[in-house]
Design a protein around this nucleic acid. Structure first.
Length: 304
DNA sequence: CAACCGACCTGTTCGC
DNA sequence: TGCGAACAGGTCGGTT
């Protein structure tokens, strides 16, 4: 579940616990989770490096290390990071342990082993060299929606170059960085826009509402330390935002705005929640949307 | 450019 | 009650 607000919360909470500490040892039991370089090099290169910063880019956690190195961590859906005493017990789902010189450990608990870690190098210009060396690690990512430099004008320019369904587009990291399933649904509900609406057909007023809704919901979610819908936990425990979601995961429950039941459809194999009264599709787009949904329903593997 | 698929994974939920 | 299939969803690489 972790999206922008959740990873931002992780970064903010880990920062005071990690900055100034030096890595003493590295342990992992599932080498597939080490993306770069080889697991052997990863284990050899980390010890001795001091952590100087903890930041976020899109849904990645970025630890700045001495020697212009960067430890990038993607917790994906089920990864939970915590800093605990080395003597604290851990279960079989802890797959990465990074020892620190204060006697504590940064641990990754991840039942599904989806999380990924990589150790990268910055060049003289500060760019993070990605796995293929020629490309910056975060090349191709869309803008950060909360970057003060990301204006409504920028958002409009991006939207008008696209025709895809808005739900798909908002979750596309190349289009916009950091938004996932929960906040895409929430932003569209706040902006009163149907998730299957094509980006290119939005009127200026819709664009403005969506821009504002995205920023508002992300800021509120950060203030509430993220949504602990099921697996996500901040280093300090559950967030609060799950108690303030208006549409996500509320199938059948009344829309907080109009009282009509929340509907659920599947878009790109993702649950999508919306209010069919508040989030209307223009007549000219209804036929196309109905066809797409029927297509999905027919090919869905479901037993009779 | 857009949509779709399979892969990566395993704990939980669902249908019978 | 117990079993196995389906489901959950972030991301990538490849295909349509």
């Amino acid at each position: 579940m972790p999206e922008l607000p959740e990873v931002e919360t992780i970064a903010r909470e880990l920062r005071p616990l990690l900055v100034g500490k030096t890595i003493t040892r590295v342990w992992f039991d599932w080498p597939n989770q080490i993306k770069h370089p080889s697991p052997e090099l990863f284990a050899r290169e980390l010890p001795g490096r001091e952590i100087s910063g903890v930041d976020r880019r899109a849904k990645w956690l970025v630890l700045e290390l001495s020697g212009a190195a960067v430890l990038a961590i993607q917790v994906k859906m089920t990864g939970v990071l915590s800093v605990v005493g080395a003597d604290e017990a851990h279960d079989r789902h802890v797959h990465v342990v990074i020892g620190l010189d204060d006697g504590r450990q940064l641990r990754l608990r991840d039942p599904r082993k989806f999380a990924r870690l990589g150790l990268y190098q910055r060049d003289e210009a500060g760019a993070i060299l990605g796995a293929d060396e020629a490309r910056e690690l975060f090349a191709g990512f869309g803008p950060e929606p909360l970057d003060p430099g990301f204006t409504l004008r920028d958002f409009r320019r991006l939207l008008r170059a696209r025709r895809a369904r808005l739900k798909t587009l908002l979750m596309n990291q190349q289009f916009l960085a950091g938004v996932g399933n929960i906040y895409a649904d929430e932003a569209l509900w706040r902006a009163r826009i149907h998730p299957l609406r094509s980006a290119a057909t939005l009127r200026p007023e819709h664009e403005r509402r969506l821009y504002q809704a995205l920023r508002d919901v992300l800021i509120e979610a950060i203030e509430r330390r993220g949504s602990s819908v099921d697996d996500y936990r901040a280093p300090s425990g559950r967030g609060d935002m799950q108690n303030f979601l208006n549409i996500y995961g509320r199938t059948g429950k009344p829309c907080p705005r109009c009282g009509r039941p929340t509907r659920r459809i599947v878009v790109n194999a993702r649950s999508t929640h919306f209010c069919s009264w508040c989030q209307r599709l223009p007549a000219r787009e209804r036929v196309a949307a109905a066809k797409a949904l029927l297509h999905d329903a027919l090919r869905a593997p479901r037993r009779a």
